[in-house]
Design a protein around this nucleic acid. Structure first.
Lengths: 207, 207
DNA sequence: TAGATTGTTAATCGATTAACAATC
DNA sequence: TAGATTGTTAATCGATTAACAATC
C-alpha cells in the first residue's frame, strides 16, 4: 500500500515533529509539516489518511499524539538492533555513529574478516564473519548493513539471509539479488555524487 | 527531461559495464543490463533513447562505446573535486573513502570548526570552516558534502552557496532550503533504517 | 533469408495535486 | 455563526511497461 517515498516522508514528518516538540508546540497543521518536509499540504494529509491518522478539522493535529503514531509506524516504540558487516571506512562510521542510538537504533555488533579489526570483548564487539549466523540468531536480529567491497557483497548477503536477516541496507556499489521476504535498500555514494554532477551540469547548460 | 531515478539507473548501467569490461565482453544487450540493474529491458532502451544512445538492432551495444557515453553523461570524463564539511564519523568516512577516488571523484579538503580536527599541511587538508569560501573559490569547486549536526546544516549550506557550491549531498537529518540553481540531495541514514524497519514489519504482518 | 533485438509509440499504472464538502 | 482546516474524491501528471514495426 504505502511505498518507499511515503515512508521516507513519514520519517521526515516525525523529525520535524521532534523539533516542534522541543519548542513546546502543542498543535501543528498539515501546512507546517509540508513546509518542514518540502512537500505539499495535500501530500501530508494524503499520507496520514493512508494510515488512518486523523486530526481535528480547524484545529490541526496534536503534536504529541501525531508523534506517537508516526513513531509506532516507524518501529520507534521499540529498540531496533542492527549488525554491520564490513569495518572499512563506511562500516566504521555507522558503527560509531551516535545519531542512530539517539533514535532507538542499536548497532549490536560489527563483523569483518580481518583479524586486525576484531574486538571481541567490547560491549559493542567486532567479530569474525564466521560468527555472524550465531550472533544474529542468538540476538534475534533482523536488520543488517552491508559495507563490504562489491565483489564480496552478494556472498555476504546470502550469509545474512541464512542467519535470518530480513532487511538490508547495502552500501556496496552493486545491485544485489534478494529473494521474496527480504528487503534490500541501496545507498551508493558514488551514484549519489554522479547524480549531483549530472544535474549541476544540466543547470549550467541552461535549463 | 531526465529525472533522478533515470540518472541513478545510468550510474548502475555504467557500473555493470565496468564489470563486463574487466571480463572482456565486447557486446551487451539491453536484456543483460536490465538484469544487472534490476530493471526491465524496455526501461534500459527507454533511458538510452532519452540520451540519443543507439545500439545495433540484432547486435546490441558495444561495451566500450556505451561505457564512454555513460561516463560522459555522468561527468566521469573529468576529475570532479568535492569538499566535505563536518569531520565527524560520516564526514571522516567519506573523506577517507577510497571508492570515490577510483571513480574520478577527489575529496579536495575537509572542513570543521574543531581545531583538534585540523590538518592544514596535508595534501588532503582539514581546514577551519572560515577558510571554506576562499578554498572553494580558489579551486573552482562546485560540489560539497554536508556531514554536520542538523542544527548547523542550514547555516553551513548558506556558507557553501555563498562560496559558489552548486550541488550538495546532505547527510544531516533535516530538509534544507536551497534556492533555484542549487541541487541538494539528501541521504538520511536514520530514515533509511526506519524505511527498512517499516517494510520488514509489513512483510511479517502478512503482505 | 529468418531470427533476434532495437527504438519508439501507445497503453497502463501509480503517485501527486487540486478541489471541495464536511465539520470543528 | 463565520472562518479555517481537514479528509477524501476526482483530475492530473509523469513514469514504467507492453507491443511491435524497423532492421541488422
Amino acid at each position: 500500500m504505502a511505498n518507499r517515498s511515503c515512508i521516507i516522508r513519514l520519517s521526515r514528518y516525525k523529525n520535524a515533529l521532534n523539533r516542534l516538540k522541543t519548542l513546546n508546540f502543542v498543535r501543528v497543521f498539515s501546512d507546517n509539516l509540508a513546509d518542514a518536509a518540502g512537500v505539499t499540504a495535500a501530500q501530508v494529509r494524503k499520507d496520514f489518511s493512508l494510515f488512518g491518522i486523523t486530526g481535528n478539522r480547524r484545529g490541526g493535529y496534536k503534536v504529541d499524539e501525531l508523534s506517537d503514531q508516526l513513531n509506532k509506524i516507524l518501529g520507534k516504540d521499540q529498540l531496533q538492533e542492527v549488525v554491520v558487516i564490513g569495518m572499512g571506512n563506511i562500516g566504521k562510521a555507522l558503527f560509531h555513529y551516535g545519531g542512530l542510538e539517539k533514535s532507538g537504533i542499536k548497532v549490536a555488533a560489527g563483523f569483518d574478516i580481518d583479524p586486525v579489526k576484531f574486538d571481541r570483548d567490547s560491549s559493542q564487539p567486532v567479530l569474525p564473519l564466521e560468527g555472524l549466523v550465531d550472533f544474529v540468531r542468538g540476538h534475534n536480529i533482523v536488520l543488517g548493513v552491508i559495507a563490504v567491497p562489491d565483489y564480496a557483497a552478494q556472498q555476504v548477503l546470502e550469509l545474512m539471509l541464512s542467519a535470518g536477516i530480513r532487511g538490508v541496507l547495502n552500501f556496496a556499489p552493486i545491485c544485489l539479488k534478494a529473494p521474496e521476504g527480504c528487503i534490500v535498500n541501496n545507498i551508493n555514494l558514488e551514484s549519489e555524487l554522479e547524480n549531483l554532477i549530472y544535474f549541476v551540469n544540466a543547470l549550467e547548460d541552461g535549463k
